[in-house]
Simulated assay, not measured.
Amino acid sequence: MTKTAGIIVIGNEILSGKTADENSAFLARELRDLGVDVRKIAVIPDDLQLIAAEVRLFSQSYSYVFTTGGVGPTHDDLTMDGVAAAFGRKLRRHEQLEDALHRYYAQHLVEPNLRMADVPEGARLIGGQGMWFPVVAVENVYIFPGVPEILRKKFSRIRETFRDAPFHLREVYLRADEGQIASVLHRILASFPNLLLGSYPYFDNPSFSIKLTLESKDAAYVNDAHGLLLTELSKLDLEPVRPA
């Protein structure tokens, strides 16, 4: 079966509009490329009970869960507490993480920084080689920082952990109105009910006005659906165009 994922973005700054969320879009693209189907993205505040409830629900619902944000040393960094609560565990100071913090901060280390070494009991450390601070995972939950640059570096170290059978994609570009092709798309889905079929309008592109995407993990299935789509479009005197 296709691996699935849920992404939980944690932070009052996202919900208040102070900071734009870049992390969920990055993770969604990366996971799609790895063959993982992202089923839900949630944005929640720095609230211990909400974090615990969302992590618990996502963990039960998806193959993988990715959290971003809330892992620093300040009062509003509650992700580790929330993940621990989701699984009924206590926080424990991890010796390896504590050592990493001592090496990183050296003489500038202060007690609040050591909070970042407190992780749920039984947590796993992943991708430590070449990283000053590894990714912390609990069950199927992978805990990432909210700073996009750091998240991307950390994810790149462990991305192959999540590789699954790839999605096969065909794209069709048209000069048409979506209303013209709506019935065609319905017929395609009637013949290929497991096809992931997307229709996306463009209003400022001089070479095309619609982009259609056909996706499946079965390459032959996609190719057969693509062939039927071209046949049905030709009946409307519509031919694919090349994007500029």
Rank of each mutant, 00 (worst) to 15 (best):
G88K: 08
L174K: 08
K18P: 10
D218K: 02
A86L: 10
G11P: 03
A137S: 13
Q60G: 15
R163Y: 10
N113D: 15
T68P: 00
A190P: 04
S199C: 14
L174Q: 09
H75I: 13
W132A: 02
I126E: 06
G82W: 03
L114D: 12
V110F: 08
L91Q: 06
A176G: 04
I181R: 01
V141A: 05
W132E: 09
D164N: 01
N113P: 07
S207H: 15
F162N: 04
Q107G: 08
G227Q: 13
F87E: 04
I150S: 00
H94P: 11
M80S: 01
G88P: 07
Y105A: 10
A220K: 07
E160M: 13
A52E: 11
I143G: 00
I158P: 04
A117V: 12
V65D: 08
G6A: 09
M131T: 07
G146P: 01
P201F: 05
M1P: 10
A123F: 04
L228S: 06
F155G: 01
E13C: 03
F208K: 09
E54A: 08
N223P: 05
A20R: 15
P201L: 03
D118Y: 12
E215Q: 15
P134W: 00
T231P: 02
D21F: 05
E232C: 01
T79E: 03
D81H: 08
A84P: 02
L174I: 14
L151E: 00
P166S: 06
L109F: 08
A123R: 01
G128P: 06
Y105F: 14
G72Q: 11
Y200H: 12
T231D: 13
A84L: 03
K217V: 08
D33T: 11
V38P: 02
R92D: 13
T161H: 12
L236I: 11
T74R: 05
V184T: 07
F87V: 11
V38I: 10
S16E: 14
E178G: 03
S24M: 07
Y142W: 12
V138K: 03
R242A: 14
S63L: 08
F87Y: 11
S216Q: 06
Q60N: 15
L196P: 04
V36N: 03
M116W: 01
L114F: 15
R242V: 15
S216Y: 06
Y64W: 11
E13H: 04
V43I: 14
L236A: 05
V83S: 02
S24G: 05
E95I: 13
F26S: 02
D33Y: 07
V119L: 04
K154N: 06
F133I: 05
L109A: 10
G70A: 02
T68W: 00
D81A: 06
F167Y: 09
H226E: 11
K90W: 08
I51P: 01
G146R: 00
Q129M: 05
A117P: 10
V36I: 13
D218P: 08
